[in-house]
Nucleic acid binder design. Sequence first.
DNA 1: ATCCGCCTTGTGAATTTACACAAAGCGGAT
DNA 2: ATCCGCTTTGTGTAAATTCACAAGGCGGAT
Lengths: 408, 408
Amino acid sequence: MNVHLDPFDRDFESIEAIADTISQILQCPVTIEDSNHRLLAYSTHAPDTDPVRIATIIGRRVPEHVISMLWREGIIQQIMDSQVPVLIDPIDSIGLNRRIAVAIRHHHDILGYIWVMDEHKGIDEQGLDDLNKASHAARSKLLQVQTQRRRREEQSFEFFWGMLTGSMDSEHRIVDRAHQLGITLPKSYRVMIIEFDTLLNEKLYEQVLYTILTAQRHRKVLHVRQEQRLLVLIDATDDDIDGHIAAWILLMERMQQRFGVKPVHLASGLSYSLYMDVVKSYQEAITVMNMKKHLPDETKHLHRYEELGWYRFLPAMIQERRARPMQHSSLSRLKAYDKEHQSGLVSTLSLFLQADCNVKRAAEMLHIHSNTLMYRLKRITDIGGIDLNDMEQKISLYLELKMDQWQS
Amino acid sequence: MNVHLDPFDRDFESIEAIADTISQILQCPVTIEDSNHRLLAYSTHAPDTDPVRIATIIGRRVPEHVISMLWREGIIQQIMDSQVPVLIDPIDSIGLNRRIAVAIRHHHDILGYIWVMDEHKGIDEQGLDDLNKASHAARSKLLQVQTQRRRREEQSFEFFWGMLTGSMDSEHRIVDRAHQLGITLPKSYRVMIIEFDTLLNEKLYEQVLYTILTAQRHRKVLHVRQEQRLLVLIDATDDDIDGHIAAWILLMERMQQRFGVKPVHLASGLSYSLYMDVVKSYQEAITVMNMKKHLPDETKHLHRYEELGWYRFLPAMIQERRARPMQHSSLSRLKAYDKEHQSGLVSTLSLFLQADCNVKRAAEMLHIHSNTLMYRLKRITDIGGIDLNDMEQKISLYLELKMDQWQS
DNA sequence: ATCCGCCTTGTGAATTTACACAAAGCGGAT
DNA sequence: ATCCGCTTTGTGTAAATTCACAAGGCGGAT
């Protein structure tokens, strides 16, 4: 066998075929992973294998603690930087035998890794060269698969976006299209918006999406990426909404720990069963999100549209107010006075109302003597011509103040 | 002058000409009135005249007290019933000299009256016959004038309706059209709806309109008649709104006294200067009217859109609620309890909130012991899971209850 | 009849709140 | 500096509100 024909100079029908070919040539177990250490393929007739490999194959991903270890030890970095296969010494503590790894790269991007278990140090120069060639072959295949996936993803984006914007004109149309795309739509769903504090670049997006997929046990999730937002169609069939949302919040926190990305806001619309209602759920989620922007204190601990309470009427009210701007005479007088004397009568009033008109409580919140508050209230009633024993007036003031707060 | 040619067998160029002709033949002063005793024409070269005639000519209408007297005495009735001229004896107390009157009738309708002052009893059979002929001539002329006025009225209806529905597409278009129709639009205006408790039939309509015109010193007023409503464009240039509305309320009461028609509701939109905004003012007036229908107690003493306070947001809120029906869990529990035990917890809560959460006041309004109310409140908080010391919750309940009240 | 849950009313004590008044700080105007 | 208006804080009292508890009425179920 002096004449060594390149066994990787052909078109492989699948990544598995590449793994098997490498394994056959090197007589070692082989696994191929993507850049996120998800299992893409593994050789089948492996003679012996180690615990890490078994766990990887079972979990369809390299176990978390192993990944952490490899990152900590700088091994991943080493593989990423090296143009040639890297030898890795065994790490007994995690059950990792000796192996050789090579990155599958395309320009400067890492598409994945090929791992070869090298129990018996049976790999020579020729073997390493073959491994390099294998890496190139894998690259072509991966790119091919990737573009396929991209195309399918794009179709799914388009589909979901169509649902979100209400441009799909009938229920069965939606169902048919989902079927075409191989997407199983949940019986009952909500639209959720996840907003981050930074732009969702390619890498971040991949990571976030991966976290979500993992949490959802790798069931496909319809989603669309926006500037700083990710729109997701979440399953609401089991009506354990609180638990569900709690899980998402946890997920977000985990994301923060891992990638340093903080999803600043979670907002979800109502749950519906008709797919034509995705628009509605989306609009509701947007409403919640806006509410969180404008009234952060009031909405700190809520995420779902149904938790908005009376605040859900605010947008409609504000629209009405904008259509017919009329100033609340009492409030405008108070505002004028505040401006003139730099006194916080309006804010005092606001907090007083917030505190259920309880003088003692409000005074404590303001860190002032209750008589001071009493004095201010007297000024407020005098200047504003307000009767604080009149529910109608208080409601009017409360709503008006909330709208002001929204608009400022 | 044995050959007596009929001097009324010709086409008169105006009603004045008829009056003059009669006057000339009979040698007496003559006035012609419409069915509402408004002056239509009077002879010019009258030799002598009485105080009533002078007042009529000056005021362009027979003085009120004279009309009342004539009705009371049954004289008007007599004239209306008689096919021939009626002789009326002088009534010194009101300064009415002896005169002869004949109705101008068309089928069974009375179009107006011809009055001839007959100081010297100088009218013979021939004169009475001439008077009858004059009445026929006046009929033709009046019908002619009436159809003209009708046509002009109809055009004005159409014009105003166009403004109300917003089908006029530009400001100068409106101004031009008004000019064409000889209508002077007020600099600033409001749309007002007057709703009656009965259908506005022809007669009623005439009467109401007449009352309004009288009150407006006979300046033309744009208006449209609907089933039970009259839509009016009222002048809001002088900003004495309260006095204005007060005047209208008085007017309505007067109407009630006179014709037994009760305008049940007055509702006015905001005042605007741009004529394109008539639509808005009309919509606002409708909103006020609806509010009065649905929340009569709350809106008993208000008529203008700007007086609605926070209630102006209710329609928008209700629309929102209808779009996404979600029940308030506390309230639905209370409602369920009420149904089960026929207890009025919800209404108690409603009144309690209305009374600014003042136990004493609310108990008095309910005619119950304050401890009874305390007990009920405890039940309400227990069953509904409500914290009545939380402004947010109270606002939510208050708004929800108002909406319920609207919809019921 | 008797029981039981639900509701209403009454009583009195504990607590809270409203209000009047005094004292004093602060900033601007004279 | 002095005055003045506005504001804050403290004190004490009168008024009110809240709350627990007792007593009794009412209607349905056993």
